[in-house]
C-alpha cells in the first residue's frame, strides 16, 4: 500500500500493543524523512523475561553475523523508507515462513545485509497483550530461527567477513518506565528440558558434535535444582552454531532440527532466569552483552563449521565469559 501510494516512509507497529503512543509514529518516521535512514528499528525497555528469543538467539546472532548492534531486531515495530519498501516487494519470500513469525527478522536482516542505513528509536516501554499459553512455541522458534538460518545461507558470502559489530544510532529521549511482571514456571521448564533430552537425543545427534551432545546430556542428567542449573554461554553458542551448520548441510532434516530446538531453548531461558532473578535491568543488559561477545568471539567456529570442516575442534569458553560465569556462580552460592 505504501508503495502504491508513493509514500516516502512507512511505519509498521504490532497490533497487540498496549503502550503505544502517538509519539511512536513520529519516532519511527522522522529518522527516515529527515535523517535519511532507510530502516528504523525499535529500542524499548522490556521486562527482563520478555523477549527471550530476542535476548538468547536473534539479537546476539544478528549482531555477530552482520556486525550491527540492533537491540530489538524482531521488535515488531519499524520505520522503513520507500527504497527499502521497493526492495522488500521485489523479493519472492512471501509464501515461506518469512510471511509468518519470520517477517521481522527478514526485514531487519535485509536492511543490515544490503547496506541500507539503519538506526534505532527509543519508544519507551513495550507492553503487549499476554501471549496465549497454548500458542505454539515450537512453531514460533521454527519460523524465527528458521528464517535466521535461511538468511544465513542467502548471505553467506557476506557474514563470514564481518569481524566486529558497531552500534546503530539511537534516536529519542531515554527514560525509565515501569513494566508488568512476568511469571515464569522454572520447574516445568527444567522438566521439559530433561524430557526433551531423553526423547530427542537422536535428533540432536544429527546436528551436534559428539562432545557438545555429551555436555548437553550431562547437563540434563544433573539434579534439576532451580538454584544450580546453568547452561553456559559457550555451550549455548556452540549449540546454535552447530544447528545452523546442520540446517545448511541437511536440507531434508531442517524441520526436525528446528522443532527439536524447543527443549534446548527452554533450558537456556531457565538458566537465564535463574542467573538474573536477583539482578536489576542494567545488570541484565550487561549479562546479555556478555552473551553477545561470546557469540562474536566464537564466530570463527561457525565459519569453520559452515565451510564443512568436520575436523574443527569446538573452542573453549572465551576467557571473559568464564571469569564472569564463575563470579555469577559464586554470587548465587553466597545468596
Amino acid at each position: 500500500m505504501a508503495n502504491e501510494l508513493g509514500a516516502k516512509a512507512c511505519a509498521v507497529v504490532d497490533s497487540d500493543l498496549r503502550s503505544i503512543t502517538p509519539e511512536w509514529i513520529d519516532l519511527l518516521i522522522r529518522p527516515v524523512l529527515h535523517a535519511g535512514y532507510d530502516f528504523v528499528a525499535p529500542y524499548y525497555h522490556r521486562h527482563k523475561y520478555d523477549g527471550t528469543i530476542t535476548n538468547s538467539i536473534v539479537y546476539p546472532m544478528t549482531r555477530a553475523l552482520y556486525g550491527r548492534n540492533v537491540r530489538q531486531p524482531i521488535g515488531g515495530d519499524f520505520g522503513i523508507s520507500s527504497a527499502l519498501v521497493t526492495r522488500y516487494l521485489s523479493r519472492d519470500d512471501w509464501e515461506t515462513d518469512v510471511a509468518r513469525y519470520g517477517i521481522d527478522i527478514w526485514m531487519t536482516t535485509i536492511a543490515l545485509a544490503e547496506n541500507f542505513r539503519v538506526c534505532q528509536s527509543f519508544l519507551g516501554a513495550k507492553l503487549h497483550d499476554a501471549k496465549d499459553p497454548g500458542a505454539d512455541l515450537s512453531a514460533m522458534l521454527h519460523q524465527v530461527v528458521g528464517s535466521v538460518f535461511t538468511l544465513m545461507r542467502e548471505y553467506d558470502q557476506l557474514w563470514p567477513h564481518v569481524r566486529e559489530s558497531e552500534s546503530a544510532d539511537v534516536f529519542g529521549f531515554r527514560y525509565d518506565v515501569g513494566l508488568d511482571p512476568i511469571d515464569v514456571k522454572l520447574d516445568r521448564m527444567l522438566r521439559t528440558f530433561r524430557q526433551g533430552a531423553d526423547d530427542l537425543r537422536e535428533i540432536w545427534a544429527l546436528a551436534l558434535r559428539p562432545e557438545t551432545l555429551q555436555e548437553v546430556m550431562v547437563l540434563a542428567r544433573q539434579p534439576m535444582d532451580e538454584g544450580s542449573f546453568h547452561l553456559k554461554d559457550d555451550l549455548w553458542v556452540r549449540l546454535l552454531y552447530e544447528f545452523a551448520a546442520a540446517h545448511r548441510f541437511k536440507p531434508l532434516e531442517r524441520g526436525h532440527l528446528l522443532r527439536s530446538l524447543t527443549p534446548l531453548y527452554i533450558a537456556r531461558v531457565a538458566s537465564f532466569v535463574i542467573e538474573t532473578r536477583d539482578l536489576g535491568a542494567a545488570a541484565v543488559e550487561d549479562r546479555i552483552e556478555q552473551l553477545c561477545r561470546c557469540f562474536e568471539e566464537m564466530k570463527p567456529y561457525l565459519i569453520a563449521l559452515w565451510a564443512g570442516d568436520g575436523a574443527v575442534a569446538p573452542p573453549g569458553p572465551p576467557r571473559q565469559t568464564a571469569e564472569v560465569a564463575g563470579q555469577g556462580q559464586r554470587s548465587q552460592m553466597e545468596a
Binding site: S138, G196, L252, R259
Partner: peptide
Amino acid sequence: QFLGRSILVWACNEEIPRPR
C-alpha cells in the same frame, strides 16, 4: 525414519506421553 522423527519431535513438544 523421516515420519518417525516428525512424530517424535511433535509428540515431545506437545508433551504427549511415550513419544518414542
